[in-house]
Design a protein around this nucleic acid. Structure first.
Lengths: 144, 144
DNA sequence: ATATTTGCAAAGCCTTTGCAGGGGA
DNA sequence: TCCCCTGCAAAGGCTTTGCAAATAT
């Protein structure tokens, strides 16, 4: 792996790969949706709806903000994306990592890092009757 | 402790106790602030600004929404309250428990329970350079 | 032909802000 | 007196919605 490659956050999918992912998920693969997927699944790192709109304005003939929100909602519904609402940002953040994992917020830069589930050992010791179905963990600090 | 007592979430403070808490925190103890503290520190459980406004409308001669937000902001600044932004609610939630602790959200009822820090054993295993200054943990599930 | 999807604009929710008036130190 | 606080109303950021036109199956 070259140094340049190591900066890439994720594997890039071809347009046809994206299209089949959408079809498999039961989503009509419209041009707008494919474009947004290309950005959100391949290029972006924890984008907001606004980030997507900005990207679309530069990389797609014409896309309305409503379509951006609508598409992101569809992708979340199909579990191709996860919605994150984190305390430091007023905007919803979209995460293409849909498996169980946690987050680390660099308070200096505002950067959000994914932490694999294995990076945190967490053991709830709850009272009788409490059943946990999911956990959200956000660590805040700095990356030196 | 009687059964009735056990339902109370917190100790009730007298008006003068509230007043001195404010003064100690360097906050002018105005009527509005004392009233809001009485609700937020004694009666309420994880209220939103809107909850405070609703309470004030019923228990205080006249209080503007701006004053509610302003006062809550002042209390947060003085560390008498903590702000919580949780994914299930569009509104900021105010927590009078300002010590390190975690939360459990009952997904059926929407109730938010405080978990003492001791209820969760959490061990981050991070890469070199990551320094953690605080942690936020939200467990979601049901209380049987 | 029928069901979806898009785009625009308007409305919505929650929160913040500007400014004038009022009250406490 | 002087400064801080309050209230009102307006503005602000982000997201959702209604509806007509365009598009896909």
């Amino acid at each position: 792996m070259t140094k340049a490659d190591s900066k890439k956050k994720k594997t890039c999918l071809s347009l046809s790969e994206i299209e089949s992912r959408l079809v498999i998920a039961g989503i009509q693969p419209t041009a707008q949706r494919i474009a947004i997927c290309r950005y959100v699944l391949c290029e972006a790192d924890h984008p907001t709806a606004d980030d997507v709109k900005t990207w679309a304005d530069q990389n797609f003939p014409k896309m309305s903000l409503a379509t951006v929100y609508n598409t992101l909602g569809v992708l979340v519904g199909a579990r191709l994306l996860k919605e994150l609402k984190l305390p430091h940002s007023g905007s919803v953040i979209y995460d293409d990592n849909v498996s169980q994992h946690f987050h680390f917020l660099d308070e200096k830069t505002g950067e959000l890092h994914d932490l694999p589930a294995s990076a945190i050992e967490i053991t709830p010791r709850l009272k009788r009757g409490f059943r946990v179905s999911s956990m959200e963990v956000l660590l805040k600090g700095s990356v030196g």
